[in-house]
Amino acid sequence: MKFTRRETLAVSGAALVATVLPLKLLASTSDLISGITGGAEASGDGINLTAPEIAENGNTVPISVDAPGAVAITVLAAGNPTPGVAKFNFGSGSGAQSCSTRIRLAGTQDVIAVAEMADGSFSAAHQTVKVTIGGCGG
């Protein structure tokens, strides 16, 4: 079988699309935020996300979120196979709307926190964490 120049270009073009597509499937930070807020605008105030700039081990990355007056905080990792990490719902006995935990990150990516305030508005914060060794097994 012999390829003409035109056919060769078409085949290589299709191959290029096939390799680029999986990257497109990884949800972007803003898409994930609007997925939580239901399309509503999220301000950047009133929420603090603390995560290390560089995490040597993606298996345990310490993070903490703090959003005074929030009823719930959702934490997402944009580059993980499943972006959801945890949702913290704060009850009436909560002293401060903050929580610290340790999460897994598959690689260098954005960690996102979205807080739902008592009045129904949303605040979002995100930070890029560089991961030296990913934590999703394989």
């Binding site: 990355v61 990490v85 945890a86 949702k87």
Partner: peptide, 12 residues
Amino acid sequence: SIVDVNMEPAIS
């Protein structure tokens, strides 16, 4: 209730 956390596999 103080806190109620829904956890995904991304928790260490």
